[in-house]
Design a protein around this nucleic acid. Structure first.
Lengths: 213, 213
DNA sequence: CGGGTGCTTGACTAGCATCAAATGTAGTGG
DNA sequence: CCACTACATTTGATGCTAGTCAAGCACCCG
């Protein structure tokens, strides 16, 4: 049953290759943009650490609305569940590299599951504040700031997420997110580059921080 | 240092008594309404389980705005932190009884910290969805449903929280919360009793559930 | 060139916040 | 017993914010 599920999961990740040898297990997995890592209802067999790129964790409501619970960047962990069944979906946002740790390996490899759970809890609680602290502009500012935190020292970075990803993450619409980015540009807090306007250059970090408070 | 901090914490809970004997340590603590259990910045020395009543966990923004992260009812755990410093406040909502488990005891008493952390993570994620799924009426309905879940089988129960507690929990204003309760009454989904209108009698559980989806 | 996708902008509307006031209840002091 | 204050809740009127619907632009690819 466990092996069977593993195969099912692998078929949902058609493009991945195991490491360089192609035979070793639990090596890094390479994913193309929007590839599925796991889906709701599947058996939870492993937890994952992001090595490069970004992952979105989301749920679908009965009406088909998507809610992105969190984005995971380099070094962050995801896939830890209360039960042994997935309650959400995980997908690569862009070209991404992740490393799986299967349940039986977790006992061997010294992973502090409690620490991972508590870190994710702290992230979830912080996001509650960001969402509740209404004002679309503040939410988008908080998102940009959070993303910038993953590139310490850099004033230019690629957000990687689409406007619709950001909207589903912040509980806004695509149009509102676009308008907020326009406002941030008008305020000379940042400018956007790249064909999809996803590359941010921070012009006034202090003003950005001021917005997130 | 640890003992010193314990004293500091106890002074912030002036009205509590230790168990029936009055001398044994880590017995149940009785709290009056709005008594503080711990505050932001204190050292985290214990986790707690609610035995009766309810506890609110909240944060304050720089502007003094209060955001209630969660309510903890009977049997639920709170006070587990990533570091050893409190990042939030915990207060009794009403007359409440809690049982502390101090750090050194946790190793002795068989407490599954990981399970507690994961349960709280699941709660926090679920709340993200409730808040993001805008519509004030749906949020209030979800809150009532969540509270009703703590009294399985009962169709009448005391919410205990004030309208302003509920507002700070759901990211709404007191007025909007009151209007939503009025709508739920007009729809014959519930009626409110008690001098503070905090006692709910569920008339149409199905209609309530339908609203939360 | 045409069609597809993702981002942006504009016009209009619905829903919640805000400000203000009324109601109900309890407690206090004359 | 009644006037007065204090507090929690409710209701009403108004304005602003973000959602909705619609259109336009830039880029890519067949």
């Amino acid at each position: 049953m466990l092996q069977n599920q593993t195969i099912v999961k692998q078929t949902t990740v058609p493009g991945h290759r195991y490491g360089s040898a192609g035979t070793a297990k639990d090596q890094s997995i390479r994913l193309k943009a929007d590839e599925t890592i796991y889906s709701e209802g599947e058996h939870a067999l492993a937890i994952y650490q992001v090595e490069a790129g970004a992952v979105r964790i989301y749920r679908l409501t009965a009406s088909g609305q998507r809610y992105i619970l969190s984005f995971c960047g380099k070094g962050e962990w995801f896939g830890l569940e209360t039960g042994n069944v997935r309650t959400d979906f995980a997908e690569a946002v862009c070209e991404t590299c992740i490393k799986p740790f299967r349940a039986n390996q977790v006992a061997v490899v010294p992973i502090d599951l409690l620490h991972i759970a508590l870190t994710n809890l702290a992230k979830a609680q912080h996001k509650q504040l960001v969402i509740t602290e209404q004002s679309a502009l503040k939410r988008v500012a908080a998102f940009v700031y959070e993303t910038a935190d993953r590139y310490p020292g850099d004033c230019e970075f690629d957000m990687m997420m689409s406007r619709s990803d950001i909207a589903d993450y912040l509980g806004l619409t695509v149009e509102t997110v676009a308008r907020c980015f326009t406002k941030l540009r008008e305020k000379r807090i940042l400018c956007l580059n790249g064909k999809l306007q996803r590359i941010v250059r921070l012009l006034d970090r202090d003003a950005l921080v001021a917005l997130t408070i």
